[in-house]
Design a protein around this nucleic acid. Structure first.
Lengths: 196, 196
DNA sequence: CGAGTCTATAAGTAAGCACTTACTTACGGG
DNA sequence: CCCGTAAGTAAGTGCTTACTTATAGACTCG
């Protein structure tokens, strides 16, 4: 939560990130952001810190990309002990946490970035491909056997996890298929562990 | 393509579905829809057929839900011959085609429906759960063995397929991981076939 | 104290928005 | 042939939007 004592620039960024994430870019008004940041709504105080609404979106995005916790942290959270299945389970669980942690970024990606190719490329290079490459290498190093190509397996795993999170997020936290997180994660780990 | 000779109501629905899908609900203006439907933009001719912009969204959505091809069609496209892996491959390929066929509906779901609980529930009950239940039953009937719960396996498969499609769609057709559709589908089928 | 800078606001502006009203045209049935 | 209805448009209404300008308080450093 941004408090009035924080730097105003930071308060505005946090408020904008939250509102863009919850309502989307277009329906969110400058006045709403100002109010949420503790400025008087509609007075235009936001423009002391950002050149335009579009500029603000850009900064919200790059801030999330910069602050994103390092990939190693969440991959190493699996530990090196336990069965391959259990390590996969830990990684998958950490991935869901990361998706939630970068919630606003993920929402913006699927909702509002289609018409902004440069921002799209930014997220692709600094988030999506980074995670995908990290998971691919993790698979190459940790799985026994390994006939299937690691990059494709990583795509399947990331897809299943991301889509589970997206659907739960869109539906307010409750996944529409009635499949609990634990059941889902367990089955996903089982399937990946059984893959040749 | 809607032509001027079509019923005006149908032309407007098609134009709105396309524009809502491409740009999102909020940034799309009534004038744009009128122009795309062959009416004079900004003249308000759209309101001869729909009560409000929100009403139009509702009708676009229910039309897509009504016109959605029956589930049996795409599940039975797998045929009953060939290895389980090959049947899975055929179903997965058909699923990607279905996602593309219901493109605008899928885009609206993740983009613009968060703030419309009734429409969200409509899509959940008439599309998402229907497909999930259909795939679950298909798995129960076709796969050999089957220790893992079918509903969870179906969630994993639908998630991987949907997310692959969403990412490719957001990035203009080119999946950001550089994983081709064939490689992806092959690996997915392999993994699901190997699952116990 | 006092000059300069940062921060905020009051009060706008011009454009864009969903939507309305009043009027015209086309057409099919009695 | 006229009347009712459907379809379309010109011209607006009132509101909201992103963004601007002018002004004033507060803080830092001399």
């Amino acid at each position: 939560m941004p408090t009035r004592s924080d730097a105003p620039r930071e308060r505005i960024l946090a408020a904008a990130s939250d509102l863009f994430g919850r309502q989307g870019y277009s329906p969110t008004t400058i006045a709403q952001i100002e109010q949420a940041a503790g400025l008087s709504p509609g007075a235009g105080g936001l423009y002391r810190h950002f050149g335009s609404k579009r500029d603000l979106l850009e900064q919200v995005l790059t801030r999330q990309l910069d602050e994103g916790p390092d990939l190693g942290a969440f991959l190493s959270s699996a530990g090196d002990s336990g069965s391959y299945r259990d390590q996969l389970l830990a990684v998958a669980r950490a991935a869901l946490r990361r998706l939630e942690h970068e919630r606003d970024l993920n929402r913006l990606l699927v909702r509002d970035l289609s018409a902004a190719p440069e921002l799209l490329a930014l997220v692709r290079d600094r988030e999506l491909r980074t995670v995908h490459r990290g998971l691919t290498r993790w698979l190459e190093q940790h799985r026994p056997g390994g006939r299937l190509p690691a990059a494709e397996v990583a795509t399947v795993l990331m897809g299943a996890l991301s889509h589970y999170w997206i659907l739960a997020d869109v539906f307010g936290g409750e996944h529409p298929f009635g499949v609990s997180e634990e059941e889902f994660l367990g089955t996903l780990a089982e399937m990946a562990a059984a893959a040749p």
